[in-house]
Design a protein around this nucleic acid. Structure first.
Lengths: 237, 237
DNA sequence: CGCACTCTTGACCGCACTCAACGTTGGTGG
DNA sequence: CCACCAACGTTGAGTGCGGTCAAGAGTGCG
């Protein structure tokens, strides 16, 4: 991550190589011969840990493809209560707001590099490349299915079931190191705000899952799944 | 509703007039001259109250446009806990599952008439009509935004705030009768399973909102918003 | 080493859940 | 037409899961 994030050619235009690789994932369906022209429309953006890519309610002027790092998408109530509606990982696509304004804030959990398109140019691209539009529709549908699963979690699962579901889902999306260790870049507060719990309950539930042998915790920012079948049974009720 | 639902030409193929009107809403962006050809691809389906249009996990073979009635979309845990991820009203589009199987069950809350397309034929339609694909993408994105708002509700709002949000949202989507009366076709159990509460808490909270003068309840299946500003302030935290 | 920040753990509390009884409504058949 | 019954909704009493408040332990950085 840090190699890409620190690369000097990522600080501005034009598109860096790592971004170009990520962009291909989104843009499959486009004639490969047109990719250079496509790359010319995009720029690299590096965002420091904790900084905001855009805020809820901002005019939606840009869309992104994640190259490296982790982004949290969150919605706030006026009194400060927060719900994290998702975490974006490398390869994910982000910012496709219909209605003109973003429906959530996007903040960098770690240092982030993302491939940025101006929205009008991207929308024109959609018109010209039906394959690209189909890809975006498929991704949006997948996001919707994930959101519905999260509704089941938030509405009906216990704290243990929520954390088990989250850890399994995050492990599946992450690259897993030797020994089955999964890096957990976000803090307990972010996990709590994603699972509809408090940090104390998240912390207690981590300890609980460790005590009962379902996971181990090499550090506060990593975990290892020990009994996957049992954890899965817990997660799915 | 009952006029359309009972019409004999709604019980089978070909497409009834009411369905055709609804279909137009989804298919704006298609050359109007091609609509007869389009209508030939669709059939009407009537579903009795309480019956299922399709189940979670079923092979996704059909997509629907709602003509009349109300459908609930729900996900189940093995032990019976249920989360209703949404209610579909006339004009809504339903069943666009990527991945081959439906991610939720769809059941008729009232008698329902829906305009049905075979999925392969509909996907071919998407290829041939970029305007239709754009419309489906816009609708899916809107659904996603609604789902994210529901995550905030389920993760962070109190029972009062949840019910206030639901009533305001449902009123906005419904046709409102004289006197501001909004019909509420679903029972307390459905509302509870949508808001992540129990029927007792929903019932108590209805009484609470009535007692504090924010709403009135002409019957158990209707409500009137009395102090919209106050209800909105409650719903938004 | 010291400070700030995050995480963990403990004690207690409260909102929503559970269990239970009762009221209301609509459909059915005598 | 009314008695009966089943389904649904309401209300009350008590409980418990997760929240709140508070203290202490780990961790990283200057």
């Amino acid at each position: 991550m840090s190699i890409v994030a620190d690369a000097p050619w990522c600080r501005g235009t034009p598109l860096c190589e790592a971004c170009e690789v990520r962009m291909l994932a989104v843009c499959r369906g486009i004639d490969p011969g047109e990719l250079p022209q496509l790359a010319a429309l995009a720029t690299c953006r590096r965002v420091e840990s904790g900084r905001m890519l855009f805020d809820e309610g901002d005019a939606a002027t840009e869309v992104y493809t994640m190259t490296s790092g982790v982004v949290r998408l969150s919605k706030l109530l006026p009194d400060g209560r927060r719900q994290i509606v998702g975490f974006m990982l490398p390869g994910d696509f982000l910012g496709m707001a219909f209605g003109g304004t973003y429906a959530f804030a996007a903040e960098a959990v770690t240092a982030v590099v993302a491939c940025r398109f101006a929205r009008p140019a991207f929308l024109r691209l959609l018109d010209e490349h039906p394959g690209l539009e189909k890809e975006i529709l498929a991704r949006t549908s997948t996001e919707l299915a994930i959101a519905q699963a999260q509704m089941l979690l938030l509405g009906r699962k216990t704290a243990r079931e929520r954390l088990a579901s989250f850890l399994l889902g995050f492990a599946r999306r992450s690259s897993i190191a030797a020994g089955g260790e999964v890096e957990l870049p976000m803090g307990r507060t972010d996990i709590a705000d994603h699972l509809g719990l408090t940090i104390e309950t998240v912390s207690r539930t981590f300890s609980d899952l460790r005590r009962t042998g379902l996971i181990t915790l090499p550090s506060t920012h990593a975990f290892v799944i020990r009994r996957e079948a049992e954890l899965t049974r817990l997660a799915d009720g």
